[in-house]
């Protein structure tokens, strides 16, 4: 099995995540889509590490995981805060800021 297929898979996952961000309306779902994108990148990195025969990609995946985790923490706390104030997490309901 050629590693290229993993690249395609990760691109697909990334695209799914990106589309999800654009299409879904629930902040948490959007957020999860972003995480999906990050992990798709991880897959890309690891695959390239294999193709290139260097370890760098795998190490980078570690860092990405860390960043993703930190992002989760910050993101969840922000979403929680707004949820507690407004009782909804829909992006559409966030409409105070326009033009």
């Amino acid at each position: 099995m050629s590693p290229t297929i993993y690249l395609l898979l990760s691109a697909l996952l990334f695209a799914i995540g990106a589309v999800g961000v654009l299409v879904r309306r629930n902040a948490i779902v959007v957020f999860m889509c972003i995480e999906l994108m990050l992990n798709a990148v991880n897959l890309t990195l690891v695959t390239f590490a294999r193709i290139n025969g260097s370890l760098g990609g795998q190490i980078m995946a570690f860092f990405v995981m860390v960043v993703a985790a930190a992002e989760v923490v910050v993101g969840l706390s922000i979403i929680m805060a707004i949820f507690r104030t407004r009782r909804t997490t829909s992006v559409d309901d966030a409409n105070l800021l326009k033009y």
């Binding site: 985790a69 930190a70 969840l76 706390s77 929680m80």
Partner: peptide, 22 residues
């Protein structure tokens, strides 16, 4: 909320462990 907090803290420490293993 406390559960979310625990979950977040877990994530942070888990990540710490990720670096400690290598």
């Amino acid at each position: 909320v406390a559960y979310y907090l625990t979950a977040m803290l877990f994530i942070l420490f888990d990540i710490e462990m990720v670096f400690l293993y290598p």
